[in-house]
Design a protein around this nucleic acid. Structure first.
Lengths: 152, 152
DNA sequence: CGAGTCGTGTCAGGTTTCTGACACGGGCCA
DNA sequence: TGGCCCGTGTCAGAAACCTGACACGACTCG
């Protein structure tokens, strides 16, 4: 359409966003037929791997706010995919768990998502995948540690 | 808080999302003092590198919908950061351009964002950065090409 | 030349998500 | 023990974004 590739395509930041966007799109595409969204899947997957997570912890893990995760959890509870105790066993934290139905629902979604991830990595060698792991972890660490002002 | 690192931290998909989220957060953090958002900055940066881009092209480049980009462009136009012809010179496409004021506004933001990117890459060697470029491009390509059904 | 397809700008409506704020319980330290 | 800070769950209110749909112009191909 217009001239292409000035220098956006060499910016790792832009490429990162691009890759993340493409991944999300691909996930939405395979999850839609299952009546599932990315956030829903993320929540269920999180609960499968870390049973008893609280609303706030789930929110952080799925990269949304506590409020958003709360409405999602209410929906999931209404549909019988997760259960939360009516009252907090300790403090205010309501530990959430998957129901058998939730686990079953997750299974299909998980397979679909895994296929997307496989596709994403299909063009990469094993050592490239290992490098990607190390590189991404490094980026995250640098970004998280950074915001702090240069301490004395 | 809870047990950590079951196997989320080895999922490249999750790590990708995590990195992208961390990057966005860091960008918002440095852009907020300048009264600028990530989408605003993206739009201006796009226009600086590819003058005359249309609304739809900008939307694709900034990973939002045409509608969202349109309201943003109206705001930018109202503030005198960009200009669009009142009528389309050809077809319906309204080519957008940065004003000197827009260019000046972008300059600060660009510096801020560049510092974030530098920080993100601070823990990586030169060859790792090159590998990251190649790997991310490969992921994007595989994800984009994939959705197509296996052709005959 | 004419019909179909594609991309664009725009309108309206609805949904999701976020920002801001509140009260409550646990843990830490003097 | 008492005060303080932190994290949590929850309640609105507002902002951002998206889905769906429309008409218009350019382009392609039969």
């Amino acid at each position: 359409m217009s001239q292409d590739g000035v220098d956006l395509e060499t910016s790792l930041g832009y490429l990162l966003k691009e890759a993340s966007s493409a991944l999300r799109l691909a996930m939405e595409e395979v999850l839609r037929p299952l009546g599932m969204t990315v956030t829903r899947y993320s929540c269920l997957e999180l609960l499968a791997q870390r049973p008893g997570l609280s609303n706030s912890e789930l929110a952080r893990g799925a990269f949304v706010t506590r409020q958003s995760m709360n409405v999602l959890l209410q929906a999931l509870e209404r549909e019988g995919l997760v259960i939360r105790p009516a009252e907090a066993p300790v403090g205010k934290v309501l530990p959430t768990r998957l129901t058998p139905r939730g686990r079953r629902s997750l299974e299909q979604a998980s397979a679909a998502v895994r296929s997307v991830e496989v596709r994403m990595l299909s063009g990469l060698t094993g050592s490239e995948q290992a490098a990607a792991l190390r590189i991404l972890r490094g980026m995250i660490r640098s970004l998280r540690d950074g915001p702090r002002v240069t301490e004395p």
